[in-house]
């Protein structure tokens, strides 16, 4: 019984959102407002339980690590983000986390550039590897904006454009699939979980 009522409430809220397809209306606005509040609201106890208690409360109050008071107070400075005069204080917790960008430079250079380049330079022993090589080079040429895309150079960059169009086509095909899948999920809920029509 409780399960049925819960499902009906979920179904009602689902339909409230779908009602937007007809036109904007109070049901949709109601669901949207509720959604935003609930989404934010439920982060608070989770952060409290999973981060505040183990990383702030326990070290300071149970283990006596008073040094942790410093980063905790630094965290509290986030409060000033929206203050006109004191917003500069909120920079401290932000910059402390930013430091790790130093690790990002060599690591992303390695994974996103060097490893990718290495695989783009495989021996051209079959047609596909050759096609991948041509595609990668012509696209890189296309993104080289300091030289006008004319003449022979323009022909090369044009090849890059064709590759990109196929790539965007593939992404588009996949995007259609993704969007439809999400709708299927909701209709499966309505027909299966609520109405019990899917076996």
């Amino acid at each position: 019984m409780f399960e049925t009522i819960s499902n009906l409430i979920a179904a009602f809220l689902t339909l409230c959102i779908f009602s937007f397809l007809y036109k904007d209306n109070p049901f949709y606005k109601f669901a949207e407002a509720l959604f935003i509040g609930v989404s934010m609201g439920y982060a608070i106890p989770l952060v409290y339980e999973n981060a505040f208690l183990p990383f702030v409360y326990q070290p300071i109050f149970l283990q006596g690590k008073l040094i942790i008071l410093i980063p905790s107070l630094m965290g509290v400075l986030y409060i000033f983000r929206f203050s006109r005069n004191l917003s500069w204080l909120s920079r401290y917790p932000i910059v402390f986390g930013m430091g790790i960008v130093g690790m990002g430079v060599p690591m992303s250079m390695h994974s996103s550039v060097l490893v990718q380049m290495r695989s783009a330079m495989l021996p051209l022993d079959n047609i596909n590897t050759a096609l991948i090589f041509i595609g990668t080079v012509t696209i890189l040429l296309y993104f080289f904006f300091s030289k006008e895309h004319k003449g022979v150079y323009g022909k090369f960059t044009n090849v890059g454009v064709w590759y990109m169009m196929i790539g965007f086509g593939a992404s588009f095909g996949y995007t259609v699939m993704a969007r439809i899948s999400l709708l299927i999920g909701r209709i499966q809920f309505l027909l299966g979980d609520v109405l019990g029509l899917i076996k």
Partner: peptide, 12 residues
Amino acid sequence: AVMAADNYPYLQ
């Protein structure tokens, strides 16, 4: 699926 096509270079 939206993200899938972008990952092929990493699969290779």
